[in-house]
Amino acid sequence: MDHTNVEDLESEAYRDSYSDGLVDMFIGLGMALIGGTWLWFETQAGVVGGIAAVIAWALVPIRRRIVEPRIGYVRWTPPRLKWERKQKKLVFWILTAAILLGVAFAQANVQGDEIPSGDRNVVAALPAFLLAIGAFVVAAKSHVRRLWGYGAVLLAAAAVTIALEAGPGGSLLGAGTTIGVSGVALFGRFLRLHPTAGTT
């Protein structure tokens, strides 16, 4: 352990506790499912929220069963828990805004509402753009470097959506798959480093 101060030690310990890639896998999977739903079942945009909710609920017990026995149990300090709650709220509102935008876009398509083509492209790119902003904000606050990469992927997906005049589904499917694959790679590395549960 090579640290100059305890704040660095705390930040590194906190970052390391999320280096297993499971959260990345779930977020990537959620985004890919939501994107796929919009892409192929545009008229059933209502299921989008349900998919995201089911995925979010599954993460906690899976993490407790697989990750915690390997890296151990830790309860963070009250200021860190407060910070974590703030980040979760921020991510929740960004996700909600992105989903609502996509639903509104899908509904407008279904009802045949006239959206000028230029505005239409920007609206279609907004979910990926919002998620990119969210990734950048959390990356800056948490110092998790891979989040800058995820933000860049989402920003590129938003740009491609505008360039190809596509709907929001494709960008989320592409970016979600990339993030999910990154999560799988991190999770594989985590299991190699921690093949069995530790003993107390």
Partner: peptide
């Protein structure tokens, strides 16, 4: 730097 932690 934590509130509590286990042996593992």
């Amino acid at each position: 730097v934590v509130d509590e932690a286990d042996f593992v």
